[in-house]
Amino acid sequence: MTTAAGRTGVFFGGTSAAEPGMANLVDRAAELAHEAAAAGVRTMWFGQGLDYDAVQLAALVGRAEPRIHVGTAVVPMYPRHPLLVAAAAKTAQAATGGRFRLGLGLGARTALEPVFGLPYPPQIQHLREHLAVLRPLLDGDDAPFEGDTLASRPITPTSVAGAAPRIPVLVAAMGPRALAAAGELADGTMPFLAGPRTLAERIVPAITEAAAAAGRPAPRIVAGVPAVVTDDVAAARTRAAEVLGFYDGIPSYRNVIAAEGKASAADLLLTGDEDTVAAGLRRYLDAGATELMLTHTDLLDADSRARTWALAGRL
């Protein structure tokens, strides 16, 4: 039996995954999952870095803490082949007894191409082909696929005993063409730094229309929101400017930040007391988000994180 996923989850990665003096990242992630579950949080998301694997970490943590659902937010498709992504996801689903969700993203070409030293394929075409291969593989369909950016030719069965139920696939899509692909070929989207106005006016209508045209159910929209409950708002905003400044240089994020009428990613931080942050989060739900993922909840200290997670648990 699985628990029910919560409407407000929390994120592990970035500052969470870089605590000084931490002996073992997997152990620390499991400790935080126990802490989150005790606060009433029922969903925990894991970011992909180069120092650990998000799918494996989600599987290990989900197995260690049976009260929570786990997911990735997000694993870049490039340069991972969908056969490998599907195998990892089905393993995580089996390990957690059906409490795993797979969040994927295109990744930032300017950041990833130099790292891997491989040519980045045309983004939207690759997104469509990756999803066209991945969904059947997740469902145990071994049919070959020949595309322009990838090919898939399984030579052994791709089903995994105990991996049911169906694994939801969410795409970190915010542009119109990526949202159309997500609506047609995936179960929803995971926008990050897209505020309530951008959700209501751009993201929710675009992906909902695409899903409806493809005869698919209403999409899940998991909005990633930087949020910190604290009495020291000035310190939180200063720290957010340091940590979130990376996103100001990525075109896709610059676009949604500007669409929200903000000058920088840090301007989207929700911070203040519990009532202030809760009111801000409700604006995202009113804008059409079906779930929230609170990120950067530990910008300051363990106390602010505990307060933020307690709020997430209540919501």
Score class of each variant (00 low, 15 high):
Leu193Ser: 13
Pro122Asp: 11
Pro154Cys: 11
Pro217Lys: 00
Ala236Cys: 10
Ala223Gln: 11
Thr238Phe: 01
Arg237Lys: 14
Pro122Phe: 10
Gly147Thr: 07
Leu137Gln: 04
Thr238Ile: 06
Arg153Ser: 08
Leu138Lys: 02
Met174Cys: 11
Ala132Ile: 00
Asp232Cys: 08
Arg202Cys: 00
Asp139Ser: 14
Glu201Gln: 14
Glu146Trp: 00
Ala172Cys: 13
Pro205Cys: 09
Ala181His: 01
Asp187Phe: 03
Val225Lys: 04
Pro136Ser: 10
Val243Cys: 10
Leu134Pro: 10
Val204Met: 06
Gly175Cys: 02
Leu193Val: 08
Leu170Asn: 05
Ala210Phe: 07
Ala213Gln: 13
Ala178Tyr: 05
Val229Ile: 07
Ala218Asn: 08
Thr238Ser: 11
Ala186Lys: 01
Pro121Val: 14
Arg220Gly: 05
Ser152Cys: 15
Ala223Ser: 15
Pro196Ile: 11
Val171Pro: 00
Leu150Ser: 05
Val160Asp: 01
Pro144Leu: 07
Thr208Pro: 04
Leu137Ala: 05
Ala235Thr: 09
Glu201Val: 04
Pro165Met: 04
Met190Lys: 07
Ile207His: 03
Leu170Trp: 09
Phe192Val: 13
Pro205Val: 09
Glu129Gln: 13
Val222Asp: 15
Asp141Gln: 09
Val222His: 10
Leu138Phe: 01
Glu184Gly: 02
Ala180Asn: 09
Val133Gly: 09
Thr238Arg: 15
Arg202Val: 12
Pro217Asn: 02
Glu129Asn: 12
Pro168Tyr: 14
Leu134Asp: 07
Ala234Trp: 05
His126Ala: 13
Ala212Pro: 01
Pro136Asp: 07
Ala223Cys: 14
Arg135Val: 09
Arg153Leu: 10
Ala164Lys: 01
Arg216His: 06
Leu193Pro: 12
Met174Leu: 14
Ala180His: 12
Ala172Gln: 04
Ile124Gly: 03
Val171Gln: 03
Leu193Ala: 11
Ala213Trp: 00
Val222Asn: 11
Pro122Gln: 13
Arg177Asn: 12
Pro154Ile: 10
Ala132Glu: 11
Ala186Ile: 01
Thr230Leu: 02
Glu184Asn: 07
Ala200Ile: 02
Pro168Arg: 13
Ala234Gln: 14
Ala143His: 14
Gln125Met: 08
Gly195Met: 05
Thr149Cys: 14
Arg177Phe: 06
Gly215Ile: 08
Glu129Ile: 12
Pro136Leu: 07
Ala241Cys: 05
Ala180Thr: 15
Asp148Trp: 04
Ala182Val: 02
Thr149Glu: 10
Gly224Lys: 04
Gly140Glu: 05
Ala163Cys: 03
Gly147Pro: 04
Pro176Val: 05
Gln123Ser: 14
Pro168Leu: 12
Pro191Ile: 08
Ile221Val: 15
Ala186Tyr: 00
Thr158Ile: 15
Leu185Lys: 06
His130Leu: 06
Leu150Phe: 05
Ala180Leu: 08
Val225Glu: 03
Ala236Pro: 11
